[in-house]
Design a binder for these strands. Structure first.
Length: 485
RNA sequence: GGCCCCGUCGUCUAGCCAGGCCUAGGACACCAGGUUUUCAUCCUGGUAACACGGGUUCGAAUCCCGUCGGGGUCACCA
């Protein structure tokens, strides 16, 4: 089993999806999971993206048994380093008459394509002009150093049958199969050749890849046959979709694995979510670990209908995973996510308070910052919520200061007792009083539980904020007074 | 357009292979209620689907055919 991404930019969520199921089957069957870098297109090569692929797969916990940076018995695992193998393979094919050299220029091919399109030809593809070039002509062109490619000589009649483990037999009329280019004029192989040759040499038993490859699979079958190699098992996973059901794409949906990491998604949640798309657990469980997934993975339970990547459900799942984290672990994740921003001990203290309130790690700062960087400069109007006029708010704040000053120990239970006594004393509703205190102490109408928060802040800080709130209210009153006057 | 794949609530899915247990179950989202100190968590309930048409059968979401719909692919990219 293998995953074979191209180093052409940010590692793609589809790569992780395919990797996950390949790895799952490897784990289930005791096979090996291989990472191969398909870097045969020098134009699309992006510096550094290979390292990003390594990192992304490890981040998700999809370690590979063989790969460019871990080695293995069938390396090298980078196609750009395997050119001699492909050239030899191509020579074999030519010698057997299953491939041929083509000297047509890209310009001629483009013109050909144009013409076929204009004529609404049912077959779009190479017209095989070079397929039966006389030996002498080939010699002459070769001697002249004419650039050329090597093409697969597909049968012109009959049909090629692809056995897809998920979809059964898929039949293709050979007349509709193009004479695919195998070796480009720059000497690099195309995907089709390199993929087949490498899968064979690397002992890949199951080719599990995305649905978009179905239509080129007959070419691969033809290649295996031409080489006389045993056929691997093919299985095509459904393509991940945008909300409009088109193939998942950058414009319509985040596809970069780094994006998910950088936006506070947990690897546990992302891989759990991916596993949910296209495969179901026998007991219909939706939240499960990688290990549980591997243990329960059953190729029979793979689906072929194309799933829409629902970010909302991912966010829900991420929240589930955050809630499952041990508070110590949540703290570690947060500190790693926001390096050097939060004091660790206090972060640990509020972690259990914020835990049920986070969907992603990005939800942390708005709730947490008030515990680290002082009370935010909130709108004084927040101190007079519904059913609380200014005088009442003033009374609450004035009474709160001495009341909380005397609480000892400064912990949630006694603080709450004091808070409730205060309500009684003022003859006000808990709801009203607590909201005013919440805004005064935390600077927001939305916060973790009030008294737990106060305990974390400490007596001095709480009293200071209470005083500041009182001043704020007084200034507001004065301002209104002068406006009126 | 040719070829190919796919079609159960808005979304992810169970059920389909081995037809009756399905007045189609679960989850997300949404709506309503409850707990609560705000928000969230948590709990309860609700709306909501077998694309359509034939056929086979005592009986079809499940098997067959067709239609329609969606998607993929047709590069010296993978």
């Amino acid at each position: 089993m293998r995953v074979a991404p191209s180093p052409t930019g940010d590692p793609h969520v589809g790569t992780a999806y395919v990797a996950l199921f390949n790895k799952a089957l490897a784990v289930r069957t005791g096979g090996r999971f291989v990472l191969r870098i398909e870097d045969t297109d020098r134009n699309r090569y992006v510096e550094g993206s290979e390292a990003m692929i390594f990192r992304a797969l490890r981040w998700l916990g999809l370690e590979y048994d063989e790969g460019p940076d871990v080695g293995g018995p069938y390396g090298p695992y980078r196609q750009s380093e395997r050119n001699a193998i492909y050239r030899e393979a191509v020579e074999t094919l030519i010698a057997r008459g299953r491939a041929y050299r083509c000297f047509c220029t890209p310009e001629r091919l483009a013109a050909l394509r144009e013409e076929q399109k204009r004529a609404r030809a049912s077959f779009l593809g190479y017209d095989r002009r070079c397929r039966d070039l006389p030996e002498s002509e080939i010699e002459r062109l070769l001697a002249a150093g004419t650039p050329h490619v090597v093409r697969l000589a597909t049968p012109t009649s009959g049909e090629t049958v692809v056995h897809d483990a998920l979809r059964g037999e898929i039949r293709f009329d050979n007349a509709t199969i193009d004479d695919q280019i195998l070796l480009k004029s720059d000497g690099f192989p195309t995907y089709h050749l390199a993929n087949v040759v490498d899968d064979h040499h690397m002992r890949i038993s199951h080719v599990i890849r995305a649905e978009e490859w179905i239509s080129s699979t007959p070419k691969h079958v033809l290649l295996y046959e031409a080489f006389g190699w045993p056929m691997p098992v093919f299985a095509h996973l459904p393509l991940l979709r945008n909300p409009d059901r088109t193939k998942i794409s950058k414009r319509k949906n985040p596809v970069s694995l780094a994006w998910y990491r950088e936006h506070g998604f947990l690897p546990e949640a992302l891989r759990n979510f991916l596993a949910l798309l296209g495969h179901s657990m026998p007991d219909e469980r939706e939240v499960f670990t990688l290990e549980e997934f591997f243990a329960a993975f059953d190729p029979q339970r793979l689906r072929t209908t194309e799933p829409i990547f629902d970010l909302e459900k991912l966010r829900w799942l991420n929240g589930e995973w955050i809630r499952r984290l041990d508070p110590d672990e949540l703290t570690r994740r947060v500190l790693a996510f926001y390096p050097d921003r939060y004091e660790p001990e206090r972060a640990r203290a509020i972690a259990p308070l914020l835990q049920p309130r986070l969907k992603t790690l990005e939800d942390w700062p708005p709730l947490a910052d008030t515990f680290f960087f002082g009370c935010p400069d909130y709108d004084p109007a927040l101190l007079t919520p519904k059913k609380v006029d200014r005088d009442t708010a003033q009374r609450i704040l004035e009474a709160a200061e001495p009341a909380f000053a005397g609480v000892d120990p400064f912990e949630p239970e006694p603080l709450e007792a004091t808070g409730r006594a205060l309500c009684e004393q003022l003859g006000l509703k808990v709801r009203q009083v607590f909201m005013v205190l919440r805004v005064a102490v935390l600077g927001s109408k939305v916060s973790p539980p009030l008294f737990e928060s106060m305990a974390v802040l400490g007596r001095e800080e709480v009293l200071a904020r209470l005083r500041a709130a009182r001043d704020k209210l007084a200034r507001l009153a004065a301002a209104e007074e002068s406006t009126r006057g």
